[in-house]
């Protein structure tokens, strides 16, 4: 190895990745996989639930990916990634022992602390379960501080359901409600069929004292917010995580702007009224 060289290799340089080694790389579903990483320098990457990193695959490029591991175990950095382009494809091909560049963590967090004393409803769609999982871990670690806890999760088909074992484990707990639905059923599926928003009306929570955390495709989130507000949850109690193109993740590149917001710095997690208007306008 070459010795490190100059000032810009200091952590102060926001554009230079740190090196992480792949501990595990396994498939969750046909198009999603999970990378478990460890820092080469041994320094754990401390993060808050909802934050993301930029992952670099040698020679292919960088992508923003939400962290999906447990914040109380930062020594192992976990991302569940959906393969949608050349970089996420290249990351999928990195084997155990291989290296990946990581920058971050970046962005705002789910309001887990603020949610204490309230009922908590997680509404996840598709890969949107991954960015919510760290918040869910945190809530379950301090379960007694919260009221009712519900996870409502919608996937495309039964085969697309992420974290099956964990969902089973959570479902068997007496102190949380877990509902999983699919848009398209398959043979043998005995669970719910229908969109995730339909689960909201079937969930027991006190709308006045509820914090909702919603993550999924933007259209799904719009429907989910409508359903939640229909149940009487105030918009200020609903938090969403948005997605836009991010190249630098630190507000330099301008790509992720949504009106006045830089999704990378001001988001990805927003309290709904902050973005409500912009989400209703096309092509912002």
């Amino acid at each position: 190895m070459q010795p490190s060289i100059d000032v810009s290799s200091s952590p102060a340089d926001p554009m230079t990745p740190r090196m992480f080694r792949v501990l595990r790389n396994y498939n969750d579903t046909a198009d999603c996989y999970t990378l478990s990483l460890q820092a080469e320098d041994g320094d754990p990457l401390l993060f808050a639930p909802g934050q993301f990193t930029m992952l670099y695959a040698f020679g292919r490029g960088e992508v923003p990916i939400s962290i999906s591991g447990d914040p109380s175990d930062p020594g192992t950095l976990i991302h569940t990634i959906r393969e949608v382009g050349p970089v996420t494809q290249a990351l999928r091909e990195v084997k155990k022992g291989g290296l990946i560049g990581v920058r971050g963590p970046y962005g705002t967090a789910w309001p887990v602390k603020e949610a204490e004393g309230n009922d908590v409803v997680f509404v996840a769609g598709g890969i949107g379960l991954a960015p919510l999982r760290p918040a869910l871990y945190q809530v379950l670690h301090r379960r007694s501080r919260f009221g009712k806890v519900a996870l409502l999760y919608g996937a495309r088909t039964p085969n697309d359901i992420l974290y099956r074992d964990e969902l089973e484990k959570w479902r068997s707990r007496f102190d949380m409600q877990v509902e999983v639905t699919v848009d398209r059923s398959q043979a043998g599926w005995r669970g719910h069929v229908g969109v995730v928003t339909r689960l909201i009306s079937r969930t027991g929570f006190d709308p006045v004292n509820t914090i909702a955390m919603v993550c999924g495709p933007e259209v799904m989130m719009r429907f989910a917010v409508a359903e939640l507000t229909g149940r009487g949850v105030a918009q200020e109690q609903i938090h969403v995580s948005l997605e836009r193109n991010m190249k630098c993740a630190v507000g330099f590149c301008g790509h992720c702007q949504l009106g006045p917001a830089f999704i990378c710095k001001d988001g990805p997690v927003f309290v709904f009224p902050e973005v409500k208007r912009l989400l209703s306008i096309r092509e912002v």
Binding site: A155, G194, T197, V219
Partner: peptide
Amino acid sequence: DATILQLMDVY
């Protein structure tokens, strides 16, 4: 409404 969302096949 639910059918429209389902039809969109957002995932």
